[in-house]
Every structure is written in C-alpha cells, then in structure tokens.
Write a protein that binds this DNA or RNA. Sequence first.
DNA 1: TATTTCTTTGATACACTATATCACTAAATC
DNA 2: GATTTAGTGATATAGTGTATCAAAGAAATA
Lengths: 144, 144
Amino acid sequence: METQRPRTNLMAVLEDRGYRATSPRRAVARLLERKQKGFTIEDISEELPSIGKATIYRTIKLFLKEGVVCKFPLMDGAPFYCLSRTGHRHHHSICVQCGEVEEFKAAPIEKLLKDAGADIQGQIVDHRIQLYVNCEYCPIEWTR
Amino acid sequence: METQRPRTNLMAVLEDRGYRATSPRRAVARLLERKQKGFTIEDISEELPSIGKATIYRTIKLFLKEGVVCKFPLMDGAPFYCLSRTGHRHHHSICVQCGEVEEFKAAPIEKLLKDAGADIQGQIVDHRIQLYVNCEYCPIEWTR
DNA sequence: TATTTCTTTGATACACTATATCACTAAATC
DNA sequence: GATTTAGTGATATAGTGTATCAAAGAAATA
C-alpha cells in the first residue's frame, strides 16, 4: 500500500548521487518534504533565514537537476517550483489562487497534437505544457 | 488572395488604439515587420542602437498588449518574442537551432487533454504550450 | 503657425532572479 | 586527528525588465 502522495527522501537522493550531506541541504530537504504546494525561492529563503540565498539557489538547482523538483513559470512568467512526486515525465496544473500544483500525464505530445489536428512542421525535440486552474478547494474568481 | 504570411501593419495598430506615432515606434515597427524569425529584446536593441533600451522594452510591451507580438520562454527559460501572424489564440513551435517560430492551433485544451486521458482537477483558467523543434530546414542535431 | 497640452523618450537608478568568485568551513576519507 | 576536497556565505555581477523624471516632441487648439 502506498500513500496518495508518496514523498521522496530528498537527502537520500543527493547522497545516492554522491553529494555531501550538509546541514543546509538537510534543512532545505526537510522543508521541501513538508511542502504541500508550490513555492518560490523567496518562500524557502524566508523560512530558512539563516541559510545564505546562494545556497538556497544552489540546493534547489541540485534537486532540479536530480529530477526531484520541478520549475515552471506562473501566468505572469514568475518562476515557481514544486516537488516532483512521480519522477516521470509529466506536466503541471497550478492553482492560480492557492499555488497548489497537480501533476498530470498525457499521451505523448506528438500523438496528442496529431489527434487534435494540429499541423506541426519539423521534428519535436521537447515540449512544455502548463495549465493554470482554479483547484477544487478554491472558490472561482471571475476577476480575470 | 493572401500571402502565406500576412503581416500586420504594426504602426497602424498603435495609431488605431490611440497611441502616438513617434519615430522610435515607427523604427521598431518597421524592423519587426521584416522579421522572419523570433527575436530577443537584445536583437532589436542591437539593430536600433540609437533607440534607448527602455523605449525598446516599452514598445515591445505595447505590441504585446495589443496582441501583435507574442512572448514565450525558450527551453532554458530565456524570453523570446515573435510577431503574431494570426492574432487568434494559438501556440508556438520554436526551432531550437534557427529560432524560426511557427504558430499552430489545436483543439480547445480541455478536449485535447480529455481525449488524451489526462486527469485534470479543477477548472482550467488558462494554459501555455511550447513545442521545441528542429524545423524542416535545419539539420537534426542529436547533441541534446 | 504659434501656443499649449500631454504623451513619449532616454538616461539612470532600481528591482528581481540567478550565477560567479573566493576566502573560509566542514564533510568525508585517510 | 590530519588531510583532502566539496560546500557555504558574503558579495559582486549578469540579465531581464520597470520606475523615475527632466527634456523632447506629437497632437490639439487658438
């Protein structure tokens, strides 16, 4: 049996990859593991004021490289991060009100777009999809 | 009959919207109208060195607001711009080698994702799709 | 066309996200 | 415990973009 949201042991990932287990990394890892929603670097930095910002950036970037954290733009382009729960290729739906992030998988993009009748020239190398949503727990705001 | 790539009269768009026809704006408009590919702010600034950078940013932002220019991130997140040829809702495929940008339309995202079997929670408010491709005129590089 | 009004410009300072540098610290290894 | 080497924090710097504000110049009016 598995919980609905399996959480990676972030520190273990780094140690497995040969990185050192330092206390700043442990602190960031612990904090991220408790995150239920997406976050900004500023969020992390404010919650761990004793850790240098450069280290926050470096540590998040490390997690990003190791595939346990994802980065994507909000609607206004501002960078936003979240824990990757599956590790597999996926996309994100971000609640524009509360910052909750859900992962979703879709058919391979080529098939998806072909089925949709899109006419793509050339060979697809990579792709990005972001969905901005009102999550099921947030009242819908029609101000946009 | 229409050419394959109808080009907007950018200056006319601004004048129709009540903005003043200044010479920096005319210069940017003329330059953009000749662009066959995507571009960065730096590109424009280098090609129009006598125009202040703030004005370049302001003018591109104006075109963005009026819907005749699009902005999106490259694979590394760097901002990239292109002329909008259709004006309608669409997505972009960007050649990772030459910067050529093609617009494509797809079925409404809800249908597209539903057909693909994606399980989306909540109400979709907005979405972004970027395809990174090798365009038909660029040799495929397998270095990635 | 001269005058007035009000938008726009360019220079500059600043904000924000992120990386580079480098002396110092602290893990891991010997 | 000493040595080696990776990592840290402070700071400077880079890149993208906006705020400010005096000066310039469109457009409107007389």
